[in-house]
Structure formats: C-alpha cells, structure tokens
Amino acid sequence: MRRHGFVAGFLLLPVALYLVFVISPYAQAFQIALTDWRGVSANLNFVGLDNFERMFGDDTFWQAVRNHAVLLVTLPVLTIALGLAFAYLLSDSAGTPGARVYRVIFFLPQVLAVAVVGVLFKAVYRPDASGVINGGLARLGIEPVGWLTDQNLALWSIIAVMVWQAVGFYVVLFSAGMAAIPREVFEAAALDGAGRLRTFFSITLPLVWDTVQVAWVYLGIAAFDAFALVNVLSMEQGGPDGATSVLATEIYKNAFGYSRFGYASALGVALFFLTLTFAALTMRVTRREKVVY
C-alpha cells in the first residue's frame, strides 16, 4: 500500500497536467459542439445536434473528408514504399557506400518546421518563371505549370511535400528495424539462392512488418492533419474550389474567421472519431501472427 502511495505521488502531477491540457479540451470540444457558442461570451446556449445536422448537409465538409480519404491512401503508401526502398538500399545487407551520410540527408527535412517547409515550397511551386520548378521548365521552353492553382494538381502537389518531409523519418525507422534482423537469416537466404528482391519480400518485409504497421498509423494520423501546409501553400486556404481543403482548415475558418465555435467544435469531434476509427481499423486489419526469430 505504501508503495502504491509512492507511485501515485509521482503520477499525480503528470496525470493532472494530462487531464487539464489534453483530456479537458477534448471534453470541452464535445460540450461546445452541442452549443451555438460564438467565442466571446461566457454563456453557452445548448442547441442539441444542430451543428452535426448542419455538418452532414455541408458540401465543404464532405469535400474535406474526400480529400482526407485520398491523403489517407496515398500518403502512407508512397511514404512507406519510398521509406522501405531507401532503407533497404541503405541497409548493411545492400552494402551501399556512404549509407550513414544518406541517412542523415534523408532525415534533414524532418527537422524543418512545417511552416518553413511551406514557405520553401511556395518558392518551389511558384507559378511563374521565378519558381524553382517552373524556372527549370521555362528553360526547356515548357509553359509554366500552376502546381497549386490547377484543380487537378493542387492536392498532389501538397501530398508530394508531405511525402518529401516524412520519408526521412521512416527511412531511419525502417533502418533500425532492418538492423535488428539477424545476419544469419540473410546469409541462409543467400545460400538458398534468393536474389535481392526475393530477400526483401520474403525476409526483410515480414520481419519489419510491426514497424510498417506503426508507420501506417502515424502517417494516417498525419493525413488527418495537413493544416499548416494547406494554410500556407494553397490558394484560398483549401482551394482552388476546395480541392485541397481539409477538416483542420475548415475548423480554423469557422472558429476564428466566422466565430462559429460551436460548429467548428462539431467538425473537431468528427475529426476525432475519424482518426480514432482509422487507428482502430488499421490495427485490426494489419494484425497478424508475430514472427519470432
């Protein structure tokens, strides 16, 4: 009993901080979502599920959800594929010279703040000949491309930035996973005459599957965010015509632009459940027998 008291004493402060700064805002968001709060009064009018009804009838909401769906598939697939490929090429079994240097270089974008990345890519995507990409195209005599102003390209341009920024982290993560695989397994496979591809799919991938699974959840959650990049890069904060809108930008606009804090909280609650559902589903679908070696 005394030992429990001792442990509780240590836990008291962190748990209190967690309750106040994490759990209570969540609880409040649920509460505010049921009101018509405008952000400057101390009193809340309860309006039941009005905000949710409005949300389900709102085209902008569904457009944002569709964009999240695209992000949810492409961001993890592209990032994990690239991350695995790079990590495999840099792993000891591949024996690429200078692997450590590459790992550092790949990781670099990860240390940049998202806003910095946004501003950086604003210059990269600039739609006239002063842009990094369009400047190169102009030299080849190709018309400048509106990377962020073309409805069919805008979301992909933003996904490319997200992948660029995320890949480095997963290269390091997968590298660590691969380094933990016993060398004998590869040697045995090599003796059996397995090529590089075969080794990758039959040995490496199954043995880092746990890590891939975690990566998928992380990236899925990142796909539900994308706020900063969309805010800095896109036109009309989610345009053109909502082609890049995500729930976070809609929440921001409704709360701080239109003082619809109640509605914004309802969107936040929707986002909460979407993220939760996704994480639960992923864990379930990708669950499989653990490989023991």
Binding site: A16, L19, V20, I23, S24, P25, Q31, W37, A42, L44
Partner: peptide, 21 residues
Amino acid sequence: GLTALAAGPGAGLLSACATSR
C-alpha cells in the same frame, strides 16, 4: 486545476477552462 482531482473529473475540470468561467 487540481480541484479536478479532489472533486472528481467533470465539474471542477471544466471550470478551469474558457467557456464555463
């Protein structure tokens, strides 16, 4: 925000934040 712990989660907790003050 420590009252939250004394009074149980819920009431006291929310009083620490924006809307119910």
